[in-house]
Amino acid sequence: MPPAKKRKIADEPKVQDGAPVDERAISKSQDPQYIDKELNAERSGDSKPDLGLVDKNQERKERFKALQARAQKSAHKNLKEAAAESQRLATDPNLLSSLSRKQAFASHNLLKADTAAAGEDFERKRAWDWTVDESEKWDKRMEKKEKHREDVAFQDYTQDARKIYKRQLRELKPDMEGYEKEKAAAVQKAALNGGLEIIETEGGELVAVDTNGTFYSTADSTDFIENKPEKAAVDRLVNDLRMAEEVRLRKRRDRGKGDDDGDVTFINDKNKQFNQKLARFYNKYTAEIRDSFERGTMI
């Protein structure tokens, strides 16, 4: 096998980008000892650290500390709220209200006893804490409450119808926006037809005056028959009527007067139970006699 050829090294100075290169620097960079020294310096940290990397690490540490502080604060807050919730659940609200009511009654009786012992008027002394308006409002409220308490029981059908009417008025929710639109359209239509005259007062207010007496409704007016309500209003009326019918039937069933009861042969619930007990034992003996009476063939 022929011997390996030796690499020929030129004696001429090396040129890079038109400038001579120092051969000592090249030979130093290719020296194995120099390369090992540089690697050891990088591994041991002798090389100069990057400033940007240091700033990022510092920022991450600060963010981590902030997150730790927030987590600790949240845990402390959750623990505090959990303790408050546990205490609230352990306390009976009915018991607290009962104790407050008893304390109020005790304070009232104590003040009344002290006032009577001093020879003063209790009602007059207690009225010092209230103004005239507050006292009148309280008296009206108590009077209304007393009337309402007396009005619960059934008196007659007129009174019952009045209570139902008042309840329906309380539950009524008029469409004021739609009413204002219809009113404005009606006023504009009447003004164009000459039925209304718009007059401006001294204060700058516009007033509509009915010139021929046809715009405002009277007892003889029949314009309301031309009104066409919306479908939603009709559906609401039908729903109210259906609910009223369901309530009526439910009350009828609760009174024991359902449609499937047949003839009413009792005057109260006790009498009804007694008749049912008699029917269980004696209907099999009296069925033929009863049918004969109903047919009119009984001799």
Rank of each mutant, 00 (worst) to 15 (best):
E123D: 14
E246A: 07
D263S: 00
K251P: 02
K137W: 05
G258N: 08
D22I: 03
A4I: 12
R290H: 02
L53P: 14
P20S: 06
K257Q: 14
E177Y: 14
A244E: 10
G52Y: 01
S27K: 14
E294F: 04
W138Q: 14
D175P: 02
E143R: 12
D260F: 04
Y285E: 14
A244V: 01
A106S: 15
D254H: 08
D133F: 02
L110S: 08
L196K: 00
V54F: 01
P32H: 01
R250N: 11
N212T: 15
N283K: 05
D31H: 10
D223Q: 07
D223S: 04
S47W: 02
I299H: 09
R101D: 08
Q58S: 15
R280P: 05
A127S: 10
L53S: 14
D121N: 14
E230C: 02
E59D: 12
K173S: 09
E23D: 11
N78V: 03
Y285D: 10
R126M: 13
E146G: 09
W130A: 13
K5Y: 11
D261P: 00
R70T: 09
A232Q: 10
N268E: 00
S29I: 04
T115K: 09
S107F: 05
A104E: 07
D133Y: 06
K73I: 13
T286S: 12
M142H: 03
R170W: 06
K284W: 03
L79C: 12
R70I: 11
L206K: 13
E123Y: 07
D160N: 08
E123V: 06
Q16C: 08
T131K: 00
V187D: 05
G203T: 11
D139F: 07
A41C: 06
L196H: 02
F266M: 01
Q30D: 10
L89A: 04
A10G: 15
E23L: 06
Q188P: 01
E202V: 13
R126G: 01
M298E: 12
D261E: 13
S97Y: 11
E81K: 05
N57F: 13
K73P: 05
N94W: 12
D259R: 08
L51W: 03
A104Q: 09
Q103W: 07
K112Y: 02
R24L: 03
P32I: 04
E134W: 00
L278M: 08
A118C: 08
L169Q: 13
P32C: 01
L110N: 04
D223M: 07
A153Q: 04
A104T: 05
D254Y: 04
A90V: 00
S74C: 09
R167G: 11
G52N: 11
G195I: 12
R43V: 13
Q72R: 12
M243H: 11
Q87F: 02
R141L: 10
E62L: 15
K77E: 09
E205Q: 13
N283C: 10
E177D: 13
K251D: 10
